[in-house]
Design a protein around this nucleic acid. Structure first.
Length: 578
DNA sequence: GCCGTTTTCGGCCCGACTGTTTTCAGTCG
């Protein structure tokens, strides 16, 4: 089993234990281990072989055995035992808002409910309301929840949730009495997907703000409304897509805003570490204050609060408890790359292949964005569905780029290609043609189902090709739609490092591939990353910002990102005559 | 199930809201 599969199975064991009614701290250990394994840096197989697993925080003797068993055999005794006593449909029931393991277990043992369908029938028949601990309202809430999970996916992509979140934020900031307001949660941390939108407001009087929030035009229904916290489901139509997403609003007093902002930005794991730091000093930390036994620490900003705990301010993107607390203690946090550091982008498409704008239109749009250069990477010949370029068309495009570069003042179009990696790891053009180009992006678009060893070998072979400059969308994943192809990324990164190749952060919000966890790993190996929008239109050039988010989550500084270099340095690095 | 300069047992982050209770359990973040 791969690292990801082991993590997913640990998660499953934890959930099944919850449904069985196991001790909460025991189940938490499994959930914690799942997360730890998922974010492990370094090669998983090596880690297992060298027995280093035992040194990882949160993994003791029992979990080590379970992980080894999962990795080797694909299952574990504890998992099989749990599966034998738990109907698989119970897990689906946990997705209903308001239903947790205890209630699901009660429904199963008392009424024999074991699926969403039997649950619906029992609710309609009024059987659930009669159960101890349940009632009419709970029964109705379950029915609403069943409808809700049919209409809403679990998570949405950041390009859908962030605009909706920012729009709600603007509406809230415009309300009278709102002193400060921010987006919080996974959106503020710029995670690639979100489950809901978290909003925080500072105000003296919360009631009118709650009232206004719950009656915003985007509100489809109100999940809960209290004095300081309300939850709604918002619906919004943009670019022809209907987006339905939950949104929570918290209102606090102005002097509570900094601690509340930290609290609601999370992540949960980051907050737990902060509270432990507070506890170590005999203080307590919650959303309202950082306080000692006799007095509270005045915090106007987040930085004040972090400083009181002996930490430098930590950018929201880093707050995942993957080393940022330690780095902040030692004043060793990286100065993260920003969108304004990006001087140009590679890997973009034009009407030559499957783009919708011409070469010239793309160049002018890139220049208007403030870029110094635009790299073109249309598809190569074998990808016929995307109108991949024949060698003649490539040379035609090269000639047109030369002409346009004569006209464009202070701006340069770079001649690249998104070259398919063929099934055997060869590139899609002969060496002579590849040598005429300024750079080569290599990508997998075919044979997604190869065995992991073959896929890895294929990509590594293409990476070793002297003409190769950078690897595009390393796993081919489509967020919330399709897993990437099976590939040993640690080996791919190792090969890239050895042969001094770059790796792309594909900034398409549906991809965000390389994942930030591996971005961090690539940085550790000294591999330059390149943030590319993979734009198929002029509008899509601006998507590079989503790639910057990934880079920041991966701890990258401007020095780690190739396209923060100005044009002269790019030309020199790629050995292009000025 | 994990962990340890309060160390091999007894802790483990903390509070809001809801619904079903009559003082609290469950869920959520």
């Amino acid at each position: 089993m791969t690292k990801e599969e082991v993590a997913a199975h640990l998660e499953l064991i934890g959930t099944l234990m919850e449904l069985r009614g196991d001790d909460a701290f025991r189940t938490k250990a499994y959930h914690g281990a799942a997360r730890t394994i998922e974010q492990l840096e370094g090669d998983f197989d090596t880690l297992i072989a060298t027995g280093k697993l035992a040194k990882v925080r949160g993994i003791g003797e029992t979990l080590r055995e379970v992980i080894l068993s999962l990795a080797k055999t694909g299952t574990a005794d504890v998992l099989e035992e749990l599966r034998a006593v738990t109907p698989p449909g119970l897990i689906a029931m946990l997705r209903i808002p308001g239903l947790g393991p205890k209630k699901v277990r009660a429904l199963n043992t008392s009424l024999g409910i074991d699926s969403l369908e039997t649950l619906r029938v029992a609710c309609i028949g009024g059987k659930v309301a009669g159960l101890k601990g349940f009632g009419e309202k709970t029964q109705q809430k379950i029915l609403d929840g069943l409808t809700f999970i049919e209409s809403v996916g679990e998570r949405v992509r950041i390009d859908q949730s962030l605009p909706l979140g920012l729009m709600l934020l603007e509406r809230i900031r415009a309300l009278p009495g709102v002193l400060r307001a921010e987006l919080c949660g996974s959106l503020r941390r710029r995670r690639e997907t979100s489950k809901d939108i978290d909003l925080l407001v500072a105000a003296e009087d919360s009631a009118p703000i709650m009232q206004a929030f719950c009656t915003l035009p985007e509100v489809r229904h109100i999940v809960g409304q209290g004095e300081t916290k309300s939850s709604i489901v918002a619906e919004w139509v943009t670019h022809g897509h209907r987006i339905t997403l939950g949104a929570d609003l918290r209102v606090v007093k102005p002097d509570q805003f900094a601690s509340a902002l930290v609290h609601f930005t999370g992540s949960k794991e980051h907050n737990i570490r902060l509270r432990q730091l507070a506890t170590d000093r005999g203080w307590k930390l919650n959303e309202y204050e950082l306080a000692g036994p006799n007095s509270r620490v005045a915090c106007e900003t987040e930085a004040d609060l972090y400083a009181a705990l002996g930490l430098d301010w930590i950018a929201p993107e880093l707050r995942e408890d993957t080393g940022e607390i330690e780095a902040a203690t030692q004043h060793a946090l990286p100065k993260l790359v920003e969108a304004s550091d990006i001087r140009g982008v590679f890997h973009n498409h034009t009407t030559y292949s499957d783009g919708v704008n011409t070469l010239e239109e793309m160049a002018l749009a890139a220049k208007a964005l403030g870029f110094e250069y635009l790299g073109i990477g249309d598809h190569s010949q074998s990808l016929t569905v995307a109108r991949g370029l024949s060698p003649e068309r490539v040379r035609h495009q090269i000639a047109e780029i030369d002409r346009l570069n004569q006209q464009l003042d202070g701006f340069r179009i770079l001649k690249g290609i998104e070259c398919d990696i063929l099934k055997n790891g060869d590139l899609d053009y002969d060496d002579d043609l590849l040598a005429e180009l300024d750079y080569v992006v290599i990508s997998v678009h075919t044979y997604f189902d190869l065995p992991i060893e073959e896929q890895t070998a294929r990509i590594c072979k293409a990476l070793r090709h002297p003409a190769t400059t950078m690897l595009g969308h390393a796993t081919g994943r489509l967020l919330l739609r399709r897993d990437g192809y099976k590939v040993n990324l640690d080996e791919v990164l190792q090969t890239a490092a050895e042969h001094r190749k770059m790796i792309e952060i594909n900034a398409q919000p549906s991809r965000l591939d390389l994942d930030w966890i591996y971005v961090k790993r690539a940085k550790a190996l000294g591999i330059p990353l390149v943030i590319n929008p993979d734009a198929h239109s002029t509008d899509e050039l601006a998507l590079f910002r989503y790639g910057v988010n990934v880079a920041r989550r991966g701890w990258l500084t401007p020095q780690n990102v190739f396209n923060t270099l100005p044009l002269p340095a790019i030309l020199q690095s790629l050995r292009i005559p000025a």
